[in-house]
Amino acid sequence: MPESTSAERNIPHWLIQTWQILVKDLVLGWRTRAKVVAMVVFAGTMLLLFSFAIGPNNTLLAKHAAGYVWLSALLSSTLLLSQSFQVEGESGALEGLLLLPVDPRAIFYGKALANWVVLSLLTGLVLVGGFFLFSVEIQAHPLRFVSILLLGSAGISAPGTLYSALTARAQAQQLMLPVLLFPLVIPCMLAAVKATGFLIQGDPMDQGGSWTMLLICFNLIYWALGGVLFGKVVDE
């Protein structure tokens, strides 16, 4: 019988495994959507807090709306990212995954993509909420917002997933994840804020393009690096 079993299994290509892990994480996210809602609420609260810190000055708030929106998204993203490996560690599921003939890259890309999807939704809601709260007049095409939103979220989720795995077994994960991640994503945040800002306020000198370029480069570097280094990080 063992002979027959090994014949009927055909270990999927790692890209297919990536897809399987992505789907698994999204299903998990959907099952625990209460947590995602909590993150959205948290991000919304951040937006309100910013307006309290600045004072009821509509022009000022509208001017800096891009910054507040992305900061709220970044702060709530740490909640999402630390969750990402908590569900793996809780009952030894990650160990189970690693004991299967699964390419570590599949685990990284699957989880990072899932985080990207959720983070994009989160950021999208925050963006809409922020524009509404700070009475921002949108001039650019909505699709351009979407592309910046996707790039910015991707820039957080790739290094975020890697660092989430890295800190998963540290004693102080909740503390270490932002300590390591925030300085790292400064370029990404800066670019996302600037690009969004130019979309809001108009971009007469066409500077938004170079920030988008920076976002793309940031993403290319960290999505590639994550795949290379993740195997090392989870290896025993």
Binding site: I11, P12, L28, R31, T32, G92, E95, G96, L97
Partner: peptide, 28 residues
């Protein structure tokens, strides 16, 4: 296959879903 002291499952998925995800990754 290893059955360790940890159940190696996802607590937020149902039993069937747990078996299914691991088997799919194995290509069964």
């Amino acid at each position: 296959g290893l059955l360790s002291h940890l159940p190696q499952i996802y607590r937020d998925l149902s039993g069937v879903e747990n078996l299914r995800i691991f088997n799919r990754l194995l290509g069964i």
